[in-house]
Write a protein that binds this DNA or RNA. Structure first.
Length: 259
DNA sequence: CTGGGGATGGGGCCC
DNA sequence: CGGGCCCCATCCCCA
């Protein structure tokens, strides 16, 4: 489910950035974050398989989608397999237009080649028996290309800004690696939050009770339990819930059907 | 089945 | 433009 209006679903008419510049390097969080963790009981990432902990290689070497972090390497049970949700890469790499123009030029100079092969669009792989057919098709693409669009090479998502795309690509490359358990994250602050699960640090305290939380969102969810007013109401039975997910569960359990 | 905690993902916003 | 943080959402697990 897209959570941003920036995400565009349509797939053609994409503008490809220079991915060699987008691929980010592994980020190791400052060692002081690990100081309160007594003994690393799980192998350090540097002695673990580079295949397992270098997600970049997963897509570039296979082109398909095995799980970047095999389940048996995940030290913490019950992780939602977000990695498994990653969509497979598009079937073919899109080559620059200039390359294809070169190819077409060489075909024009070789009539036999023209008969033997079809003209293929570099953007959507559609093929045409004639050059003019391809040219017409590409005109449509050019119109579409005038609308700014940056598409991900790992999945079919598109973004209106390069920055948004770069941020998204981190969700594939997962450059932030936990030194303790080797789990990889897309952003440093996600890793920091994860490290708190090792250290037990809970910086977010509830003002109404003694509970503390490692994550602000979880504190916010907890605060709802102190509130008399539940934010989420079932449209059918008017029952209210403290969390959207609880309302969804309620609806899925058949309330809406029953009414 | 319900409610709540824990962990995580990911786009947006601000500096 | 990038990093850090915010906010929302989701999933899993357990009582």
């Amino acid at each position: 489910m897209p959570r941003s209006f920036l995400v565009k679903k349509h797939f053609n008419s994409s503008k490809k950035p220079n991915y060699s510049e987008l691929d980010t390097h592994t980020v190791i969080i400052s060692p002081y974050l690990y100081e309160s963790y007594p003994v690393p009981i799980i192998p350090q990432p540097e002695i673990l398989s580079s295949v397992a902990y270098n997600p970049i290689t997963v897509w570039t070497t296979t082109g398909l989608l095995p799980s970047p972090l095999p389940n048996d390497l995940s030290p913490l049970s019950g992780y939602p397999s977000s990695l498994g949700r990653v969509s497979p890469p598009p079937p073919s790499d899109k080559s620059p237009i200039s390359d294809e123009e070169e190819r077409i030029q060489s075909k024009l100079s070789d009539p036999h080649a023209m008969e033997a092969e079809k003209f293929q669009c570099s953007l959507c792989s559609k093929t045409y028996s004639t050059f003019s057919g391809l040219a017409k098709h590409k005109q449509l693409h050019c119109d579409a290309q005038s609308r700014k669009s940056f598409s991900c090479k790992y999945c079919d998502k598109e973004y209106v800004s390069l920055g948004a795309l770069k941020m998204h690509i981190r969700t594939h490359t997962l450059p932030c690696v936990c030194k303790i358990c080797g789990k990889a994250f897309s952003r440093p602050w996600l890793l920091q939050g994860h490290i708190r699960t090792h250290t037990g640090e809970k910086p977010f305290s509830c003002p109404h009770c003694n509970r503390a939380f490692a994550d602000r969102s979880n504190l916010r969810a907890h605060l709802q339990t102190h509130s008399d007013v539940k934010k989420y109401q079932c449209k059918n039975c008017s029952k209210t819930f403290s969390r959207m997910s609880l309302l969804h569960k309620h609806e899925e359990s058949g309330c809406c059907v029953a009414h």
